[in-house]
Structure formats: structure tokens, C-alpha cells
Amino acid sequence: MTVVFSFFLLTMLIVTAIAIVRIRDLFAAVMLSGIFSLLLAANFFLLDAADVALTEAAVGAGISTVLFLSALAMTTDKEKAAPSNRIIALIVVTAMTLALIYSTFDNPAFGDPDAPIHQHVAPWYLETTREAIDIPNVVTAVLGSFRGYDTLGEVFVVFTAGIGVLFILGAPSGKPRQTTDLHSEGLRHYLVPRVVGRMLTPFILLFALYVQFHGDYGPGGGFQAGAIFAAAIILYALLEGEKSALEAIPRSWLIAMTAGGALLYSAVGVAGMLLGGNFLDYSVLADNPVAGQHIGILLIEAGVGITVTGVLLSIFHAFAARDKF
């Protein structure tokens, strides 16, 4: 039955995508892509990917919407009608679509448990997680331990993006902009958002911590927690103004967090090396290998969370600061 639901959700996904591409108002396009993310996340949820659904919602609907809006505020929100090679592009795209659809007919049937993809490595993960790591969330086990090296890479991708945005937006501007003080004011003068927001912010922070440390047992983990944590601070900045947010967590802290999280993660890996295992081998961290795995995953998830929070907030502030030139 879920297949039928998916059918409707997927159709809506396509409709939204077409609308996003066609609409000239970039502001509307960004809102629609928020909706697109929610739809996609709902689909992921139907397909048993709870962790991914959580991440997609936090990133797609939350963080990237905020980023797009910050960028729009500094550029423009109307796409100009322009001469374009639309026809050629359409032909290329249509041809590729048909070719690809043709190739899908041989794919293993959707959800077939006997497909090779489910036979080779996946069962091993499920079994070994029970024995060697002993946490319920297999996704976290794979993410944190079996493929912890990938996740280390992921943290450094985020780290790179963070320093990249700081670097690019740290460049001296071509020309000074007129100062509008609106941003620093925030939405402070609007009663309802302010009251609701103030009430909510601590709860969101608390919830972020829950997502961080509950990652072993349910959907969640360092990345999602970091995104939610950052979202809470962004909410605070929206309500109370940039300045107050920066007073709460100054820029130098953010840099330290960005670097510190990445260092924490790597340090856990190096510790494994020093204690006689391979890089990122957590089993040697404690006398009992399973306990070692627990410690390792806990620490690296903390590292992920710290870096992601630091980077996302740095990026947000970098965009916001640019606006006030």
C-alpha cells in the first residue's frame, strides 16, 4: 500500500520540480524547493530511510532555505528573461531521459529481497552490528564505525565548505553598500514570533542534544543534531538580531568549534592507531571491544556535531555580515 502513497508523493515531487524550474520569482522558487525537500523526506521515510529523512528535512527545508534566502537578500530575487539555448537543452535532456528509462527495465524489481544489493554486504552489517557494536541503529553503526572513514571525509567536506565561505566572503568588497540596520533589529518588535520563539529556542537546543545522543538508538546523530543546533541559533538571530546571536556565541568560538570537532574526530582515529589498532579502530579504546566501539562512536558523533554547528553558524554569519556592508 505504501507504494501507492509513494506514487502520489513522487508525482507531486515532479510537479514541484517543474514548477521550481519554470517560475521566475526566485523567492517563490526557494520556497518551493523547501516544499520539495519535505516531499522528498516524506518519500525517504516511506522507503524505510528514517535517518536520511531526518537529514533531508533539516538540510533541505531548513538550512538550505536559510542560505538561499540570505543569498537572495544580497543579490536579486527576480530571474531575468534571457535568451537561452532552451530548445537544444530540451532535446538533449529528452534524449537522455528516454535512454535512461530504457535502461531501467532490467533493474532488479523494486524491494526484491533477493536482489544482489541486499545479499552481499548488507546482511553482514546487520549481523556484525549486533555482535561487535551492539547498538540498535545499524545506520549509525555503519556510519560511525564500519565506514567511519567516509564520515571523517564528510566532516572535512563540511569543514572545507566552512573555511571556503569564510574565505570567499572575507574578501574585501568591490564597493561599499549602504547600511541598512534592519537585520540587526531582527523580528524583535513582532510580539507573537518573539514570544513563541523565545519559548521554543531552549527546547530546540535540548532536542538537538537528544538527537545527538539518541543517535545510537533511533534516527539521528551528530550531523542532524548539529544542523538542528545551528537552526536554533539561527532562529535566535532572526528574533533577537545578529548582534545578540554573536554575543551568545562569538565568532572565535565558532572557528574553534569548526576546527575542534574535526580534530576530535581525527584524534579518536589516531588514538586507535596509537593503542595498537588501525586508524579509526575503536575496539582498542577500552578493554572490552564493544565498549570501545561505544566510546568511539559517541566521541566521533560529538565531533561531527560540533563541527557542523560551527560551520553552519559561521556560514550564516558570513552571509549576514556581508549584507551589512
Partner: peptide, 21 residues
């Protein structure tokens, strides 16, 4: 299967990083 989920978690993060840059 948990593996594709792990991969996509990573890919989503890569995507947002590229977008920010």
C-alpha cells in the same frame, strides 16, 4: 539495507557544502 542510507547521508552533506560555497 542500511548502506545506501549511510552513503546518502554523506552525499546530502556534500550537497549542502557545495551549495554554500
Amino acid at each position: 539495507n542500511p548502506l545506501p542510507q549511510v552513503l546518502i547521508l554523506t552525499a546530502i552533506v556534500v550537497g549542502i557544502s557545495t551549495l554554500a560555497l
